[in-house]
Design a protein around this nucleic acid. Sequence first.
DNA 1: AAGAAATTCAACCGCAAACGA
DNA 2: TTCGTTTGCGGTTGAATTTCT
Length: 330
Amino acid sequence: MGRPPCCDKIGVKKGPWTPEEDIILVSYIQHHGPGNWRAVPSNTGLLRCSKSCRLRWTNYLRPGIKRGNFTEHEEKIIIHLQALLGNRWAAIASYLPQRTDNDIKNYWNTHLRKKLKKLQGNDENSTTSSSSQSNFSKGQWERRLQTDIHMAKKALCDALSLDKFDHSPSNPISPIPAQQPVQGPGTYASSAENISRLLQNWMKNSPKSSQLSRSDSENTQCSFNNNPSIGSGSSSSEGTISATTPKGFDSLFSESGNDFTPENTVIFQVESKLNFNAENGFLFSKPSLEESQVPLTLLEKWLFDDAINAPAQDELMGIGMGLGESANFF
DNA sequence: AAGAAATTCAACCGCAAACGA
DNA sequence: TTCGTTTGCGGTTGAATTTCT
């Protein structure tokens, strides 16, 4: 017997998500938090498989996601990390907490790979690029190993002395876990930007997608009441995002079986205690220990001891840029 | 202006790791 | 330890959009 499908394929909807589906999903996660994706379709009535729900959340609806053009700085980091880590997009994304692995992967495939190819092509005309290329691949695993060791050191360090870690936005390579679930239901709806955009798009497209009359749309209210503490640089925040649903939308939430009933108003409450930085819009939480959350073995003890004596947290960037391959492209 | 080609990116698929009983 | 289930990841696809001819 083979592996069972992640979901019942019969009656499962595929393709682009509608704004209505997005709101249902966001609202559900607002109430229950992410996780237990298996239960999401049945609890929300969404005709989507659990995977699709998770993907939609992590790649699009999750708070703190920055979309649109990548900055030159982000480009550099991606190119650099790709050279070091290979196509480990999730690992790369952990250094760019506002970007999703999917986004980075897409950006790499569509923009950066070409860009690098072009630049490498130019190099070939003038230099012994073939030899440097072979040197590059020869040493790639070595650097990868080096990076892995470095990351393990860091993670161990963080686990045992979190305060030492620099979470400031000025440290662009702080390994803030982009997709780490954060406890507490209020955390997830804190992305006023995302939800605002979501609702705006929905209203923009509403005549088509929601079959709303113009007057209905005009009657639609959408407000985002962020607490003044947001934007004041406070590490904690509290805000309320509310969107009065237009006529006809109520039915989406009043389907039997849904254990959340927003009635006419979807309210997203953002409580304090969460690690939401309003200025940057992403979550600061304990660094991911995904690669190192294991008992201390001799090796890890060694790594940790070594890390204690290590000079700087941002040496990764230093090491990498020192290598030159990717840095030289700019 | 119209069709073709190229590009973009959201979403899907399958595999493997992680998790829990 | 084993086995079934869930989650995460990376590769790939294809519809929509943009650019070119």
